[in-house]
Design a protein around this nucleic acid. Structure first.
Lengths: 214, 214
DNA sequence: TTTTGTATTGAATAATCATTCAATATGGGT
DNA sequence: ACCCATATTGAATGATTATTCAATACAAAA
């Protein structure tokens, strides 16, 4: 009797199955990092959660480090795709665009506790800082400069001149980082609704006449 | 010939020496966490930096975990002492107090990269969350509520009614967390001067008539 | 001088894990 | 039915590291 049958390889499903196992491992990694922390994430646990053998996980991703970084890359791409769509959407005016950006930054897809836990883990683990920069710096810079450009338009439209676009965008970005961190600690208080409301209120206070910042 | 002579115990210096070794180990722990990260901080490295033997470090602090948490406790107390003085200083009016608070949060004593690295490491390492809460939650709550009270006075004095004290203090606290994180990545851009300026500008925008928010 | 108690060392132990790799399973081609 | 290529397993290996503890050094007391 075969207790642990090897997985059946099916050429027709080969590509898909590659993806499935690949993605299953990445999802399992994200879950494990969120539950145990980056330091205590072991290949054995990830493999178990993904329901493949430990040897296989290592074989597929070459090394633990590569598995971890692949998970970061996945989140980074997912995030980038979501805000890029908003910046490229020609149907939006500046205010509508900013509101979409805020809503995206605290959407359940982007700002889930599991995913935030991964971001924060990589931020804070010195060992991964160079890799983090390689994977995310470019996109962080683009996001940051797009925000600033967007706020420049908004300032122009509203005759707001006291705060510079740079100041407003830096404030926004810091707040997002800070709130994400707080979501991890106390998701009850720092609900997505609360965070979005806080940030919209910040903008409402700057652009007083704009009704859409609730 | 005695290559590694044992440390001489001197009863007159006993108390002091206790403190010295204790503090040397805590300082070494902070440095090591900042340089290597919480996960890769080994007792051997800390002991080496503190110039005591590995066995001694373990003996003194009972366990690695206790050494790490003692370092967090040290920072937590240091931080609390510094803001407590400001809240208790009767010579300050609300605006002066807030300015002192901002300056303290980005002083070189409190917001050094090494110390921020330790805070952020403990924030983000799930394993330490319960211990973090035990050590810091109380003080975090007091800090938060003192801030809110302070801003309530300020709103009252200035007839500012659009933003609630809660909103302003939550925004302030999130920004501080976010900026601290950014100081770790890019201390050139996120200098103490830049961070303080950004936050003062935030307040200046709310309390327009107050000249002291530079 | 000898004894005693405390401070400190450093080597041994044991646990945890990433990584490797030989063995096995499977399905398609022949 | 047999062979081959590929997918997958799981046990063995080796490295790292917290923790323990017997041995040592020293100062003060006797």
């Amino acid at each position: 009797m075969n207790i642990n049958p090897k997985k059946i390889s099916n050429p027709q499903l080969k590509e898909q199955e590659f993806s499935i196992n690949h993605q299953k491992l990445i999802d399992a990694t994200i879950e494990t990092i969120a539950k145990r922390g980056l330091a205590d994430t072991t290949i054995a646990q990830v493999a178990k959660k993904a329901m493949v053998s430990q040897g296989y996980a290592n074989f597929r991703f070459k090394s633990k480090e590569n598995l971890l970084l692949s998970s970061l890359k996945f989140l980074s791409d997912e995030y980038k795709n979501s805000w890029q769509k908003i910046f490229e959407d020609n149907n939006l005016d500046p205010v509508g665009r900013i509101i979409k950006i805020i809503e995206n930054d605290f959407s359940s897809k982007i700002a889930s506790r599991n995913k935030i836990a991964v971001w924060v883990s990589f931020y804070s683990e010195v060992k991964f800082r160079p890799s983090y920069l390689t994977i995310c710096q470019k996109q962080d810079e683009i996001y940051s400069s797009q925000m600033e450009k967007l706020i420049k338009e908004l300032n122009f439209l509203t005759d707001q001149t006291f705060l510079t676009p740079r100041e407003i965008s830096e404030t926004y970005l810091s707040m997002v980082d800070g709130l994400w961190q707080r979501i991890l600690f106390d998701p009850k208080i720092y609900s997505h609704v609360f965070c979005k409301g806080l940030i919209k209120k910040y903008f409402k206070n700057i652009y007083t006449d704009e009704k859409r910042f609730v």
